[in-house]
Structures are given as structure tokens and as C-alpha cells.
Amino acid sequence: MSQVQSVERTLSILEILAAYPEGLSIAKLSKDLELAKSTVHRLLSTLSAKGYVQQDEQSGHYRLGIQCLVLASSLLNQLDIRTVAKEALHTLAKSSGEVVHLCIHDSNEVVYIDKVESDQTLRMYSQIGRRALMHCTGVGKALLLGFTQEQLDHLIEEKGLPKFTETTITDKANLQKELKAIKERGYVIDEQEHEKGIRCIAAPLYDHDGNVIAAISIAGPADRVTNERVKGDLARAILDQSKHISAKLGYIKK
């Protein structure tokens, strides 16, 4: 048995055990892998010694060990949202021809952490490092999907719901109604709520635990980013890329 073959078989054991949280017997693993029990036992012994599998004392079944979690946690901690999202941001900017943003929330505010400029002339508020309120921006409302009722109440108490344009949501009940609608359709529309003349579509990004950790948006002049585009090609594009980024962050929709 060559070294490469040993690695392949070892990884196959881990992949199979990942699908069986209650564990499997050597006999079942041997059957699934079409390998001799002695070979499977030898590989399991090595994995067990390193902490990648553990054996149940009562059933004798093997399941994944703590070391797998250590490796997974290390990988997830190394994932930088800007690096993970960069390709998707450029894809969105190229396909839409508009400005694309990546944002997180901090201290009940939106923080712009990356931006891909449009090749068309556009003057707008956003800059990397700049902050904005959450209730009046597409990315902000996307991030609010991850808030509990208590967190939302605290945000309103601390920041208020100030008016920026004629379409800004300034009422708690209307904001909650909007957030419910956003959950149902999966994306956010900023109907010129922060800057008059600028329409935006946004979507949340989820991590491996299902938490909303960031948001992306496409923004442009209302005469280019029309309601028809927002509900058509732009909605499809931003949902596709938000799902793609979230999957790279380890999110699995249940």
C-alpha cells in the first residue's frame, strides 16, 4: 500500500464518519470502504492516537475526534471576510456596472470595509472605513437580520431612526415589517433611504454558525439601478454571490 493510497483511505474514513455522528463499527467501515478489517483497524489506530477519531467505550464504534474540531476552528479563524469576498465583489461590479460594497456592523453602525468602484461616474457617501446608520442603508438592514429583538430595541434607543430622505424608515413598527419582508425574499432594497437618487440592493452573509456577519450591496443612480433591474438581474446576481460567499465561510443552509 503506497503512502498516497494510505492518505486517501485515511481521508475517506474521516469523510464517512463525518456523516455518522453516532459512529460506525470497523465492520461497517470495512464494508463501505471495501477494505480488509485489519487495514481499517490500523488506520483507525493511527487516527485515534492523533485525536482525529475516538472510540465509544460501550459500543466500540468510532466517530470523529476533537482534533478535527481544532483544525476546523483554526481554518475558520483564518478566514478573512475581505479576502473570501473579493472575487465575488469584482464579479458583481463587472456584471452590474455599478458600485459594490462589503460591510460589517460595529457599535450599532455600518462600517464599509471594502468597495469596488463602478467604471461609470458616481458620487456617493460610501468610502472604506466610513460609518453609516443601519436603518437607512441596504447593507445596514441586511445586517439587522442577525439582530435579536433586544438588540434592535437597543439600537433604536441608542441611535434613533433619523430621517435622511422622504423614503427613510423612521418608525419601529415599519422597520420590523420591512425586516420580515426582507427575510422572506432574501435581499434588501434601499429605496433612496440614505441618499436621494441612489438606489441599492443588498444581501446578508452568514458564517458557519448561521450568524449574519457581513453584508454586500450593489448601488447606483436610481435611473440606472431601476426597480426592474433590482427585482430582476441584480436580485439574482446578489443572491447568487451572497450564497457563494457564505458557503466559503462554512455556512450550510438548513
Rank of each mutant, 00 (worst) to 15 (best):
E98C: 00
D106P: 00
I81N: 08
H101V: 03
L76G: 04
E98V: 00
T91P: 00
L76N: 14
H101E: 05
D80C: 12
H105P: 00
E98G: 00
N108I: 01
D106Q: 05
L75C: 13
T91C: 00
C103M: 12
L79T: 06
K86I: 02
L79S: 12
K86A: 10
G97D: 05
E98R: 01
I104H: 07
K86D: 15
G97N: 03
L76S: 12
V84E: 12
A88E: 05
C103P: 02
V84P: 07
S95C: 01
T91G: 00
E98N: 02
N108S: 12
I81D: 08
L75D: 15
G97M: 03
L75P: 05
K94S: 04
S107E: 14
N77K: 15
S95Q: 08
R82N: 13
E87P: 11
L89H: 07
N108F: 14
L76P: 05
D80H: 14
K94G: 00
H105Q: 05
N77M: 13
S107F: 11
T83L: 14
L76F: 13
G97T: 05
D106M: 03
V84Q: 10
S107I: 09
L102Q: 09
D80S: 14
A88Q: 09
S95W: 00
G97I: 03
H105R: 01
E98Y: 00
K94R: 08
V99P: 00
K94Q: 06
K94Y: 04
L89Y: 03
V84F: 06
A88C: 02
A85E: 08
D80R: 14
N77T: 10
A88G: 00
S96G: 04
I104N: 08
A93L: 04
